[in-house]
């Protein structure tokens, strides 16, 4: 009998505790973000102050599904549904740094996903145009980005393989899924002097993150930057 009473009291206490609003959750995330930037990004060699600032500013936990929020600032990618992922924080920062973005730059992103990469790029560049093939992901990313004030990001549902001709040329292009080749339309839409970053390789295998430069005469040069493992770019 006494045992049952204790059980009821304990249960009531648990219910009461769960009802208390978690004050300072935002502040907690901010601290997690700063630690993430310091330990996962800065310590691994990302130096661009604008990129670091953007990574500190953009609330990554809002770009992951509710059930993964507690892992949002951990050092790995997370699933966002439809077999897609939000990339590891370091990869987002590293790819953004590779693009050498400046205020006023126009950026094209192939593969919006959750919208996190676009949000980070938008804090460094002028305008970001991003295309997502999944209607569901495109709609949720658009709502999320608009809802959190990323007014310089434009999301479109569609096949990013062809770029975004009406908005071209772009100063920088970022492909956030593994491909077996660089889509020729993207190279066409890259402004002379522009940069393109893409993971190239077999699906699910280790891919080479390739940096493509188009010089002022329109000549293309490429170099491998690091090994990555992205989910496949649809259709490849």
């Amino acid at each position: 009998m006494i045992l049952t009473r204790y059980r009821i009291i304990a249960l009531a206490a648990l219910v009461a505790l769960s009802a208390i609003p978690v004050h300072g959750a935002g502040a907690g995330y901010k601290a997690l973000r700063e630690r993430m930037v310091k330990r996962q990004i800065e310590d691994r060699g990302v130096k661009n102050p604008a990129v670091l600032e953007a990574m500190k500013e953009v609330p990554r936990h809002l770009f992951v599904p509710e059930r993964y929020r507690s892992e949002a600032y951990e050092d790995h990618p997370l699933p966002i549904g439809l077999g897609q992922t939000i990339s590891q924080p370091y990869i987002v920062a590293f790819m953004t740094e590779l693009l050498q973005l400046k205020p006023g730059d126009r950026v094209f992103e192939l593969g919006t996903g959750s919208g996190y990469q676009a949000a980070v790029a938008s804090r460094v560049a002028g305008e970001v145009f991003t295309v997502e093939i999944y209607r569901e992901l495109a709609a949720s990313a658009e709502a999320r980005l608009a809802g959190h004030g990323y007014s310089n990001v434009t999301v479109r549902e569609g096949d990013g393989y062809f770029g975004w001709e009406e908005k071209a040329p772009f100063d920088a292009i970022i492909v956030t899924a593994a491909a077996d080749h660089i889509p020729p339309p993207l190279l066409e839409q890259l402004r002379p002097g522009g940069r393109l970053v893409i993971p190239l390789g077999g699906p699910f295998s280790v891919q080479q993150l390739v940096m493509v430069n188009k010089d002022l005469k329109g000549r293309i040069s490429e170099r491998g930057v690091m090994l990555v493992r992205f989910v496949p770019l649809l259709g490849h």
């Binding site: 077996d180 080749h181 660089i182 889509p183 020729p184 190279l187 493509v212 293309i220």
Partner: peptide, 16 residues
Amino acid sequence: APAIRSAAGLSTGYPG
């Protein structure tokens, strides 16, 4: 599907 496009290792110089 219209979006299926594969060309393993296609050169960046391919113009078409």
